[in-house]
C-alpha cells in the first residue's frame, strides 16, 4: 500500500453537493459542504435528514441512483473520487476508505461465515494465498479484542451478538488497511455498556494505525467525547465546526439548541428546552 506524507490531508472535500431528482422536483440532501481532514477523529453530527449519512456515502461514491454527486473537489489520499471509474473505485473502496454501518445484522452477509467474509475482503485488495488471507483474518479478529477468533471465524453473523458482530465488521474494514474509516452510527444499535467497548476498540485501532476516522452520529455528546473535531450539519450544510472539547462554547443557535434540549443526569429541570428553528439557518 502506498503511504502518503503525513502533512497532506487524507481527505479533501470542496463544495460537495448531492441531489436527488424526485417527482416533486430536485431535493438537495447535501448543499455545498467543504472540509479537510488529517489523521484525526472527525465527528459529523446532525438530526435525521441533515445529510450526514449522505456525505459518508458520497465519499465512497455509494450514493444510490437517482442521486447525483457534484463538487469542486473530492479527494481521498490524493486520489480524485469524482472522476474515478468503476475500476479505480474498487481499489479506493476498502483500500483507501472503508465504512462501518449502523447495524451488523444488516451489513454482514448473512449466509457467509465471518472468516470467509473477511478473507474475501483481503483477497480483493491484496494478492495473497488462501492460507495467508486466513492468517490475516485471524489477526484482524484478534485486533478487535475477540479472545477466541477461531470460534468467531467459523460463525455465521446470526450466531453473534450485536457487539461481536460490530467487532467483526470493524475487523473486516480494517483488514485492508484503509487510510480513512467512516463509521456511520457504529454503536446506535448497541447497548450502552457494549457501546463503550466498541468505541474503545475503534479509538485504540485508529490511533495506533494513524488512520483518519469520520464518525457520523446524531449523538452530539457522544461524538464530542470521542472525536477531536466536530462538524455540525443542518439542512445539508455545515453550520458550525468545533473543537470537541469546546462544545460548551458553541456559537450557532442550532448547536446550542441541540445541547440544551437534552435531558441531563447532572441537573434536574421540570421542563426541557425545545428548539425554535429559524428558517435563516438553512439559508446561510
Amino acid at each position: 500500500m502506498t503511504s502518503i506524507s503525513p502533512e497532506a490531508p487524507l481527505l479533501e472535500v470542496e463544495g460537495l453537493r448531492v441531489s436527488f431528482a424526485t417527482q416533486r422536483g430536485l431535493v438537495e440532501a447535501v448543499r455545498g459542504v467543504s472540509f479537510a481532514m488529517g489523521r484525526e477523529k472527525l465527528g459529523i453530527v446532525g438530526e435525521s435528514g441533515s445529510g450526514k449519512s449522505t456525505i459518508g456515502r458520497a465519499l465512497m461514491r455509494l450514493v444510490p441512483s437517482p442521486g447525483v454527486v457534484t463538487g469542486q473537489k473530492l479527494k481521498v489520499g490524493g486520489k480524485d473520487v469524482l472522476s474515478a471509474n468503476e475500476r479505480d473505485l474498487q481499489g479506493l473502496r476498502g483500500g483507501k476508505i472503508a465504512m462501518i454501518m449502523q447495524d451488523p445484522k444488516f451489513s454482514l452477509n448473512p449466509v457467509m461465515r465471518i472468516g470467509t467474509q473477511i478473507e474475501e475482503a483481503i483477497r480483493m485488495h491484496r494478492r495473497v494465498t488462501r492460507k495467508a488471507a486466513r492468517a490475516h483474518a485471524m489477526e484482524a479478529l484478534l485486533a478487535v479484542r475477540i479472545s477466541n477468533p477461531e470460534r468467531v471465524y467459523h460463525c455465521f453473523p446470526h450466531e453473534l451478538s450485536g457487539g461481536m458482530g460490530q467487532r467483526a465488521m470493524i475487523a473486516m474494514m480494517l483488514s485492508t488497511q484503509p487510510d480513512v474509516l467512516i463509521a456511520d452510527e457504529p454503536t446506535s444499535a448497541l447497548d450502552v455498556t457494549v457501546q463503550a467497548q466498541v468505541l474503545a476498540i475503534l479509538d485504540d485501532l485508529v490511533s495506533r494505525r494513524g488512520m483518519g476516522l469520520i464518525m457520523i452520529s446524531h449523538d452530539l455528546e457522544l461524538v464530542a467525547s470521542f472525536c477531536d473535531r466536530v462538524l455540525v450539519m443542518y439542512a445539508g450544510r455545515i453550520v458550525e465546526t468545533l473543537e470537541a472539547s469546546a462544545l460548551s462554547r458553541a456559537v450557532h443557535p442550532y448547536t446550542r439548541g441541540l445541547i440544551a434540549c437534552l435531558p441531563r443526569l447532572s441537573e434536574a429541570s421540570s421542563r426541557l428546552q425545545t428548539m425554535q428553528r429559524d428558517p435563516a439557518w438553512s439559508q446561510v
Binding site: 479484542r145 477466541n148 457487539g163 461481536m164 467487532r167 455498556t193 463503550a196 467497548q197
Partner: peptide
C-alpha cells in the same frame, strides 16, 4: 478505559 476492552 482499557478495562472494558477484553470480552468474548
Amino acid at each position: 478505559d482499557p478495562a472494558v476492552l477484553d470480552v468474548g
